[in-house]
């Protein structure tokens, strides 16, 4: 997670084991809405941007249903913590640390993400 200035030619990048991986232009990310990206190893990541242009990335697979849909959930913030609600059964996940807010035993992977 990092703060980014809004200019159109910035790229959204994810930190992978072997360095930064470019996903898309920052301008394709609508604040409050996610997109999905495919990683070279076949994993899927859901990337989000909030209204203050903070970026977040979590695993795209909804652990409760197995469907790759978290990027399509509605986002929000609760007491300053950003979250996404799964579009299927509506469990919420903290975007910063991947913790499921409705079930303490469930967590999704998070990725470091930046715009540059």
């Amino acid at each position: 997670m990092t703060l980014a200035l809004e200019t159109t030619d910035l790229k959204v990048q994810l930190q992978l084991a072997d360095g930064w991986f470019t996903v898309c232009d920052l301008s394709t990310l609508v604040p409050g809405r996610g997109i999905a990206a495919l990683l070279p190893d076949g994993r899927q990541v859901a990337v989000f941007r909030d209204r203050s242009d903070r970026l977040f990335a979590v695993d795209n697979i909804d652990p409760f249903t197995g469907a790759a849909v978290l990027s399509r959930g509605l986002t929000g913030s609760h007491l300053g913590r950003p979250f996404v609600a799964s579009p299927l059964l509506k469990q919420r996940f903290d975007l910063a640390d991947g913790q499921c807010l409705d079930d303490a035993s469930v967590r999704v992977a998070v990725y470091e993400v930046r715009a540059r």
Binding site: C24, I61, A68
Partner: peptide, 18 residues
Amino acid sequence: LARFVSFVNAPDTPDPVV
């Protein structure tokens, strides 16, 4: 229309989970 893709970085690849 650009939104209707499974992956922003691989618009022609279908979601393999489906």
